[in-house]
Design a protein around this nucleic acid. Sequence first.
DNA 1: TCTCAAAGAGCGAACGTTCATTCTCAAATT
DNA 2: AATTTGAGAATGAACGTTCGCTCTTTGAGA
Lengths: 220, 220
Amino acid sequence: MLLDTETHANGSSEESLSRAERRDIQIKRILEAAKTCFVRSGFQGASMHQICAEVGMSPGALYRYFPSKEAIIAAIAEADRKHDAEMFALIEQAPSIFEGIIACAMAHIRHTHLDGNAAMFTEIRAESMRNELVRDTCLQCMMDVENDFRVHLERAIEAGEIDPVVPLESLLGILMSIGEGIAINDLPSRNITFDEIETALRVSLGALLRPRDNAIATRT
Amino acid sequence: MLLDTETHANGSSEESLSRAERRDIQIKRILEAAKTCFVRSGFQGASMHQICAEVGMSPGALYRYFPSKEAIIAAIAEADRKHDAEMFALIEQAPSIFEGIIACAMAHIRHTHLDGNAAMFTEIRAESMRNELVRDTCLQCMMDVENDFRVHLERAIEAGEIDPVVPLESLLGILMSIGEGIAINDLPSRNITFDEIETALRVSLGALLRPRDNAIATRT
DNA sequence: TCTCAAAGAGCGAACGTTCATTCTCAAATT
DNA sequence: AATTTGAGAATGAACGTTCGCTCTTTGAGA
């Protein structure tokens, strides 16, 4: 019986992958391992050797996939912020702008609560204060999200659906800040329930936005 | 003409300082220079040689004042958090708990807006996720502040001065998070005025706390 | 008031280590 | 045969820290 070269074999778990597919898998493995290391030691604190050890790969091999440590950092920062941006697209599907904002905020908070996401998030923010590449990535994503929000908020204001207590631009900044503050502090890890957070958000954002029909609180 | 040894001379600008005083001055200079470097490059990114260059001091000299780089980081983190804690003592002097909280939050936001304070703050937070010394310092200060707040809030709740929509512990976490979120995002640098921020805070925290007499907004 | 040993402050070269990255070469895949 | 993938030793730079040294300040005894 001749063993097929895996190119056109089948049945087993990891065969018949094209070069490009194998490459993608390796890249994903590297990014995942790097994230683990970065959460543990920070961008500057984690060494390439540690990342190599975590992937189970030699430096020579790793450098075939990423040209530098900074490239890995940039890739991670970009992936993380892209994920955030996609999450904020939730606002599209909501029945009202108020519900949309609450949904976005809660999704963000739930996601940041997972794994080392709060630490990674904090690290990215800190790095963005000095690393130009990371800063640009963050700024770009933030702008995308804010632009999205701006359009929706503007439309809702004109339609009389909400009547915010501060001008649009200030409102944008404040909404983002509140969401981010609760997210990075990872309140659920301090035994504050998602329900309580949602209640607080509904009440405070409700007061800020003043939606027409006052269906704000889920409970008193 | 004999030049006086500065010990008992006078008239010039920097004379007749005791050893201890000179030492304190040098320590302050080092901390200041280190802060500049840390804001520029992060805790891990800034090297001792860079700090030496910034102070205008050799490594040998610098190590007479601090036994290690981590000791400098710890000193900076502690000073920063202590300053925050002192600021939060503003709550004592306010006419009501609501006004006290608003005053604390605004003071915090104003302070974070100065110099590189937002960057430093972010860096300290990131470092506290992995450096035990920094974590303990942060936790200790946060606990001090929260304990202070807890006492006041509890008293105000029992007196019927406020009627928060969420339980005390959750309220504490949420208030802190909102303040911190606005602070580290440094909204004033994005042309959002202090007045607008204060209005937003009054409205949203007002809705959260529900103070008895509804004198919340400074303006509509 | 003067002298002098002790202590403190500062310098800058040098230490051993670790870093990100590169090089050379072998194995595997096409 | 040609190309891709991988290993792992090697590279030079940079790191935090220490060392041996000089110069200055200090304070007690003469």
